[in-house]
Amino acid sequence: MAATRTRRTPAPGAGLRLRILLFAAARTAVGTRSFEWPVPAQGTTVRELLAQLSEAHPSLSPVLAHSRFFRDGRAVTRRDERVKPGEEFAVHPPYGGG
């Protein structure tokens, strides 16, 4: 099943992972604050990563459509940026401060 992929599918290039951080509606959709995600040694594009996450967690898909993304604390500006093993990839649903 796609939803079990986070835990059971071996990484392509075993042991290479990035950390997914979820906030607010994204966390509610998946039910966890963070998890590890397999990634090849050369990394993967933001576009590919979002497609994989949507497939694994269909409830996250509508949240991703309205979210901003950060790699190691820096805002993602292009979907063809490569996310590399060891990085932190944060999903920011629409903000609600103030």
């Binding site: 906030f23 607010a24 901003r68 950060f70 920011h92 649903p93 903000y95 609600g96 401060g97 103030g98």
Partner: peptide, 14 residues
């Protein structure tokens, strides 16, 4: 400041 803060600062409330 307050308008941009609400739009652009990664803070959420429950």
């Amino acid at each position: 400041l307050i308008d941009r803060l609400k739009r652009n600062v990664p803070v959420w409330k429950e």
